[in-house]
Each structure stands twice: as C-alpha cells, then as structure tokens.
Design a protein around this nucleic acid. Structure first.
Length: 926
DNA sequence: CATCCGACATTCT
DNA sequence: AGAATGTCGGATG
C-alpha cells in the first residue's frame, strides 16, 4: 500500500463511529494487512494477546507478532491499559514494535523501540499516522514521521488534483498546465490563510465554499472564482466589480497570486468533497521547507503518488548552508556577545545578504536559509532588547530559478508562508497579520531554464553598477525580474542541488544547454555531468559579483575523467574551494534511497577564510582543498594514453556487446558440449570482475574468422550468432552497429595469446588491496577488467601495493564508494621512480610470494582472501613486505600513513609530468 | 579504435 | 528485505 492509500484508509477509519470489537482489525487493515491475515487473527490462531482471557476480561487485545499489541480499553482507562500492554509478557514475547490503547475517546500508543509516544483524541489519530508507518513496512526517518501533516495534505491535494483533471479533461492539456498550477497554488494559500486568521473567521474559505455552493457541486467553480476575484480586488472597488457581499470578509491579497484569469475548473461531487476535506486539515502545521517539495510532485506525472519524497532533507540542506555562510553568522553572533553596536552591525550585514538558488525547485534551500537567518536576527534583537522588532531581512533577497512552473509558484508561496510563520514566532500573531497583506507583487522566483538564463539578470550585481552584456545567450530573457536588491554592497551566496545527469542520460535539449554554457570555454565538456554546467554558470557570474557558491553534486565531478575538464575552468575564474563534503551516500525521505553518492563543494572568489573538509561526521581544517576534495596540493590528473613512468601497456578488456548471446554459463556450455563436442575449441573461459574475485565460471564463444564455417555448422551457435547480429543492429551505438556484420566476434578484441595480468574494473572499497592476478593464455579477459598481456611479474607487485590502491582511490571515479579501475586515469598516470633491474627482481619476488600465499589457501576465492575480516595472516604478511619493498624505492623507508603516500604521489606526478610535458590523451594536445 | 560511467542494477545472505 | 558489490554497453573522444 502506498502512503496515500494508507492515509486515506486511516482517515476513513477515524471518521466512522467507533466500534470496540472491530477497531483492532480495521486498524490493521488500514495499514495494509490482507483479509486472510485478519481472518486468522480474528479466529485467534495468530492472535498472541494475553488480554483476551478470561472471558469477562474488560480488554479486547489483539497482538500481531512482530508488529503491534492493540487493546480496546474500558472507557477512561486508556493510560492504564497502555501500561498493561507495555508490561505484558506477551508483548515482549511476540516482539511487538508498538502498543496501542484506545477507548474510542482518546488514543495512546508507544513505539517500543524508540520510546516515542503519542496521546491524542481518537478522531485526531490520523494526524499521527506517520507514527505507525512502520506497520505498513514503510520505514522512514524520524523527520518524516514528524511531518504527518505535510504527508496528509499532500496526499489529499494529490487526490483532488487527479479528480479535477478527470472532471476537466481540457485542463489536463499541457497548454493549461499554467492555469492548473496557478489554481492549486491559490487553493493552498487559501487553506493556509483561513487557518491563520488571514481570512477573518474560522475555516472561512472552506465554510464559504460549502455554504454558498450547491451540494450537487454544479456551481462550486463559480463560487471559488468569485472569491479569487475578490482577493484580486481592493475592498473599495468590489461593489463596482459586482462581487457579492459574502466575499467581503476576504481581504485584498493579490501579489500576483490572484491576478490574471480567475478561471476555476469544474467540480464533481467527489472533487467538491475532497476540497472540503482538505480544508478540514489544520494548515497552521504546514512546514514550508518540507511541504513545497512534497507538493510539487502532484503536478508531475512521474512523481505523483511518490509524495515527492526525493527532496533534499533539511539536514542535507544545512550541510550546504551552514558552512556556506550561516556558521560564520553564528560565530559573529557569539563574538558580539551583548555589545549592542556590534550586534547592530551584524544585523545590518544580514539585511544585505542575498541567497540565490538557481535550481530552487520548490524553494527549500531558500526557505531554510531564510528561517535560519530570522532565528539569528531574533537572537540579535533579543540581546539588543528589541524583541518583536520588525525584521530587516527582505524576502526579496532570496532568489531562485526553477524550470517547472508549479514548483516555482510553490517556492514563492513557501517563502511567503515562512515569512509569516517567522513573524508569528518572533513578533506575534497581530504583527504578522498587519504586514502580510496585500502580498508583495514582486517575483523573486524566476521560472525558466537556469542554463539558458543570464543569472546577472535574475540576481543583478550590486554596488558598482556593473553593466553587463548578455553575450552568448541565444535566449534573451525578457520578463526577468528587475527588482533592486536591498543589499547595496552586500554579500551574495549561491546554493542549491541542481540535477545530475551523466553524459549518457541527457536528452538533445540538455546537450544543447551544455553546449551553450561550455562551448565558449572548452571543447571537451560532453563527458561532464549536467550539474557541472551550474558550477560554470556560477563562476561566470562570479566574474561580475563577489560571491560564494555551494552546490550538492554527483561525486564524479570530483573524480576521474571529469576533474581535468571542469576544475581548471573554475580555478581559472579565480575561485577556490573553501569547504567540501567528501562523498557520502545520498539519503532522502523515501525508504528506498536514490542510490547516488554525492559531494558538496563550496567555492569562493573573495574571502580567504579557513578551509574545512567534512568527511561523514568529521570536520577538519585543511591547508588546501584540491579538485579531488583532498587536503593536498592542487594537482589535476589527466587521462594518458601511455604510462608516464614507462610501465608496460595496460589494455582495456575484450568487449562482447552481444546482447548476452556470445556468453555461456557453465551449464549452458556443458549442454552444448554434450551434443556438439566439436564446439570445444570455440569456447573459451571469460573472466571479468566477478568471475575473477568470486572464482565463478563463465564461457564465451571465441571464433576466429577461419573457424566461422565450423561455428555455423553447429545450430545452437549459429542461432546465437544470429541473435548477436540482431541485437547489434537494433543498438543505438555506432560501434555495435558497425560490428553487426561480424557477429561471431566481440566488438573490441585486444586479446593476445599470452598469459595476462587482470585487474577487475570494479572492486569493493572494503578490500585493503586491489585484487590483481594472472590468467592463462586461453582465457578471455572481458571489458569488466583491465589487462596487461605478457606482463612482467613486477607489475603485479605494483598493482597490489597500498600506494597504488591509494592512487586509484584518489584519482579514479568510484562506483558507489567502491574502487573503479581505469588504465588511462589510474595506471598510465601512476608515478613510479625509475626502477633498476634489482628493484624489478625484488618486486618480482614479492609478486611471486603473493601468488604463492594465495595458492596455499586454495580453493578460497579472491573475495574470501581479501575480506578484511578474514584475510589470512600469511597473505597479509607478504603484502606488507611488498609494500615495504616498493615504498623503500620511493623514499627509502615505509610511509607513515596514507596522507603521506598521496602527498608523495601527487608530488612525483607533478615532477614527472612537468619533465615530460603532459601528453594528454586529447587529440591536438600532443 | 578505446573506454568511462551510471539521481544504478542485480545478486547475495 | 536489506546489504553488498559489480553487469552492460552507449556515448564520446
């Protein structure tokens, strides 16, 4: 069951009259239990409760194993019953996660694992349904459980939206998106306004719609439209406009929100009742930083139903905003103490800070920045004995660009709501109301494409009155806001979480945007991630404005191939990295997370402050932060076509691109050989990452041209070859298509008939050493591994070293946080001092020892042997010795730690590349 | 021709 | 069902 369905079921249950006998079952049903499960519970088979016998027990207990112990209590004994449930041995024995007691009047429950408790009236319990979500197998963070209101509101708006589109097919057309989005935004404002005294009278919007419109819903849209028009008309002019008396109590709101067409979609009875239902929620509980992100999903066909759980969580937003500038403000606040003059200066400074999010979605970064600043300002005012003072922080200093219209609309609304809530909190309800209406007509959120728009237009430079020309923009922004900032000479902070898309996943339009941003600076941008364009736009903007920038980005902009493409451009614009979060796994509110590893990078072109590197929960002061987000010198490692240290050529493995048809499992091979023994010579062992580390067996058809007629005479092989041809013809890739005419061969075939050294392309970060090994001449190394044919054995010693592992980890991309080996970025760039014959002989011995040590543990797999928990002592010992021998070649002793290793490697890399000149892979650079 | 990377994908336990 | 860990081949240089 989805969260929306659960919310619906729980709300429905609370609205029904309380039935003491049925409640436990209906409750469990609402959380997704199947009929059969409930049947067995009712029968008692699976009901483990000890509160049912004896017959005259006043309690009706239902205990579902591993889940919940529910009891319906005698009237007025809910608290007592809950403690009985908690103390019940059955509860513990059945490992219940929750206990719940209710008498139909009140309801109390406890999450036994976390100790969280709720107590509320019975009819109110759906407002806590997030508390119980675990029962439906939905695991969420504590944060989301606390946002029950936002989930409920979103899911109800979701239903209304879908229903309205059903009733009004013409509104579902894309050219009416704008009207629909605008309508939903207006509704949300009205709901919020009616619960916060902005509209006179309790629930006045909902009540007016309910009373003035017919029950059959035929004129609901007319009534709502009338109210919208009233809110767009000054009270004095309303009579002339022919607006009815009952609209008088609604104030003049406008601010762009109610201007323009007052068109409202038609309502069915169902959508009308949804509307009234939504109005029934307590909208004062709205959380603008969360709600906006959730609500934006309802206008998104792909996202609808997921409740927009993919938004950036508040802690993650703070990971960006705190080091960007909030920490500094708080430090200044601390320093100021009670010094009124210093406090005043800080307040003046804050009033001129502007925050700009060029990928703002529904504005959560802006909202949180605003709320945090208000909190600091309130503390200043308190210390200055000016509590309740009107805020100096103008909402117009919070700017954003958003591509999609609905989120852009919601972002503006969220900021207005945030301002109102802050005013209520720090100044009082009356003061908040006074200053709210009419809404400011200025538009701080620009709806448009951030990569096409000129940011200087959205967030114009201040101070010197810099004139700028929109040089390379083929889309000249016409209706961008030209609102003067109230921050003359103030600071500018750019932040956000722009979209990431690797080069393979972009559509032609997005490619064109990348071209528009990058082509002036560089030719090699196509391998960059989409998010890189935001970085470049930001540093271009920084040519005109002193600013600091912090974005969340995919980790791969700071690893591997992309580093040498992006970071020189950024550093050349005079920016340096002043804080960074090392790669961490992205978590959002959904239980199934996005599966992406991200970094946060903070850049500045002005103040040189302390630089900090955040690594998970640690924060360290850094001397320098380089493009790999390491506290090390500014080295950028480019792909090389051959080793800078004169090491043997390492190749990329053989690539099938066969739709799986040239590859056989062990059993497929057996089956084929039993019928066609003559196929033996056409089958070779295929080894990639997994086969090597886990010693599994796969086989491939390896057919030389002169063996083709033999191959075609074997029906199952001929059939496979035919399928390869079909798969390659159907492929969008050029290489596959080109090779469709020789479907018996792999598309890339560096294979040589020699022993080969194999390095898996992906390998777990948990291993202390890169797994590397040898395979014999009739094994095919797949494109899932790098390979050296006819390798000198000392190359194995190098790959297996801690030095090399550190280098690969620092310089190559990672898959998740696992190592991803690259011959051009990792091997060809690896700096090694010139090796003497003696060095090579010593390393060869070490390599042999490693192989022998592994052999002694046959048939343990590489995965077994290199499991850090289980690594055999003798294997560890030979690796230690290998490291010792290699490290002595570098510095005459062992390195003290990995920091020292990397320092030396970067240093040596710089020296070698300076000496030989960087022979980049790039054509034309040589 | 050669290969890097994945707002991932699939297999283990 | 969560944890672990690397397929596959297109897009690009």
């Amino acid at each position: 069951m989805s969260m929306i369905e659960i919310e619906e079921a729980v709300s429905a249950l609370a609205e029904q009259p309380f039935d003491a006998n049925e409640f436990p079952y209906l409750f469990l049903q609402a959380f997704g239990n199947k009929e059969t499960t409930l049947k067995r519970l009712r029968k008692g088979d699976t009901n483990k409760s000890d509160l049912i016998a004896p017959e005259d027990s006043p309690y009706r207990g239902v205990l579902q194993t591993n889940n919940i112990h529910i009891a319906v209590a005698p009237s007025g004994e809910v608290t007592k019953t809950l403690s009985i449930l908690k103390a019940s041995p059955a509860t513990a024995k059945a490992k219940a996660k929750f206990v719940l007691a209710t008498d139909g009047e009140t309801l109390e429950a406890e999450n036994l694992a976390s100790g969280e408790v709720i107590a509320c009236t019975y009819v109110d319990f759906p407002n806590h349904f997030g508390f119980f979500l675990e029962l439906a197998g939905i695991t969420t963070t504590k944060a989301i459980r606390d946002e029950t209101f936002d989930i409920r509101a979103t899911s109800r708006l979701n239903r209304l939206y879908v229903e309205l589109l059903k009733d009004n097919p013409d509104w579902a057309k894309s050219e009416r998106d704008h009207d629909m989005n605008h309508f939903m935004a207006r509704l949300i404002f009205c709901f919020f306004a009616q619960d916060t005294d902005i509209f006179g009278g309790e629930k006045s919007f909902t009540v007016t719609v309910e009373q003035m419109s017919a029950k059959d819903s035929s004129d609901t849209h007319t009534v709502i439209s009338m109210l919208f028009r009233a809110m767009n008309t000054k009270t004095a002019d309303r009579k002339a406009e022919g607006l009815p008396r009952w609209a008088d109590k609604f104030p003049y709101v406008n601010g762009g929100l109610f201007s323009g067409s007052a068109d409202v979609p038609c309502f069915s009875r169902i959508s009308r009742s949804y509307l009234l239902h939504i109005g029934g929620l307590d909208w004062t509980k709205i959380n603008p930083d969360i709600f906006g992100s959730m609500i934006q999903a309802i206008a998104d066909d792909d996202e609808r139903g997921s409740l927009g759980m993919h938004y950036t969580s508040v802690p993650n937003i703070l990971k960006v905003l705190n080091p960007l500038f909030l920490d500094d403000l708080r430090t200044q606040l601390d320093k100021a103490g009670d010094n009124a003059r210093v406090l005043l200066n800080l307040r003046k400074r804050m009033a001129r800070i502007r925050v700009f999010d060029p990928a703002c979605g529904s504005g959560n970064f802006l909202v949180i920045a605003y709320k945090q600043m208000r909190e600091i300002e309130a503390e200043i005012n308190r210390r200055r004995k000016e509590a309740g003072r009107k805020s100096d922080i103008p909402l117009t200093n919070f700017r954003g660009i958003e591509l999609r219209e609905f989120p852009a609309e919601i972002a503006r609304l969220a900021l207005i709501i945030a301002e109102y809530q802050c005013d209520v909190l720090y100044r009082g309800q009356k003061e908040a109301l006074q200053d709210l209406l009419p809404l400011n007509a200025e538009n701080w959120i620009t709806q448009g494409n951030a990569l096409r728009l000129d940011w200087l237009g959205v967030c114009p430079p201040t101070g010197t009155g810099v004139k700028h020309h929109a040089e390379d923009l083929f889309h000249t922004p016409l209706d961008q806001p030209q609102i003067d900032f109230e921050n003359e000479g103030g600071e500018t902070y750019i932040c956000g979480n722009p979209p990431y898309l690797g080069s393979q996943w972009r559509n032609p339009e997005q490619q064109a945007e990348m071209h528009a941003v990058f082509s002036r600076h560089t030719d090699s941008y196509k391998d960059l991630d989409y998010v890189a364009a935001w970085f470049l736009k930001a540093v271009e903007y920084g040519k005109h404005v002193e600013c600091a920038v912090a974005f969340v980005a995919t980790k791969s902009v700071n690893q591997g191939r992309q580093v040498s493409m992006l970071w020189p451009l950024i550093f050349d614009c005079g920016f340096s990295i002043y804080f960074a979060h090392r790669p961490f796994n992205w978590k959002n509110m959904a239980s199934n997370n996005a599966g992406v590893t991200v970094v946060i990078v903070g850049l500045t072109n002005s103040r040189i402050t302390d630089r900090y590197i955040f690594d998970h929960d640690t924060k360290r002061l850094a001397k320098n932060i380089n493009a790999y987000l390491l506290d090390a010198q500014d080295v950028i490692v480019s792909q090389m076509s051959r080793s800078i240290s004169g090491l043997p050529t390492m190749d990329y493995g053989n690539k099938p691109a066969d739709g799986g048809n040239l590859i056989l499992s062990h059993s497929e091979r057996e089956a084929m050989l039993s019928s066609y023994p003559e196929a033996t010579i056409l089958l070779k062992k295929l080894v990639g990452s997994r086969e090597f580390t886990s010693s599994t067996n796969r086989w491939c058809l390896w057919i030389e041209d002169e063996q083709l007629s033999l191959a075609m005479s074997i029906p199952p092989i001929a059939a496979r070859i035919k399928k390869v041809k079909e798969a390659r013809q159907a492929s969008k890739g050029k290489q596959s298509q080109n090779k469709a005419d020789e479907p018996h061969r792999f598309v890339y075939t560096p294979h040589k008939d020699t022993v080969a050294l194999i390095v898996p392309s992906i390998t777990s970060e948990n291993r202390e050493y890169l797994p590397v090994g040898l395979v014999n001449n009739d094994t095919i190394v797949s494109n899932k591994a790098a390979v050296i044919y006819a390798p000198p054995l000392w190359t194995l010693s190098i790959v297996a070293s801690r030095l090399h592992t550190q280098w690969i980890g620092a310089v190559c991309v990672r898959m998740r946080s696992d190592f991803s080996y690259s011959n051009t970025i990792g091997w060809n760039t690896f700096p090694v001092p010139t090796l003497t014959e003696k060095n090579k002989a010593d390393l060869t011995r070490c390599a042999e020892d490693i192989l022998l040590a592994r052999e002694a543990h046959f048939p343990a797999t590489i995965a077994d042997l290199y499991d850090p928990e289980k690594m055999p002592a003798d294997l560890r010992e030979v690796h230690e010795r290998n490291d010792e021998v290699l490290e002595r070649i570098y510095i005459g002793r062992r390195f003290r730690n990995d920091t020292e290793r990397l320092e030396k490697l970067f240093d040596l890399y710089s020296k070698i590349t300076a000496r030989t000149g960087t022979k980049k892979k790039k054509a034309g650079a040589a």
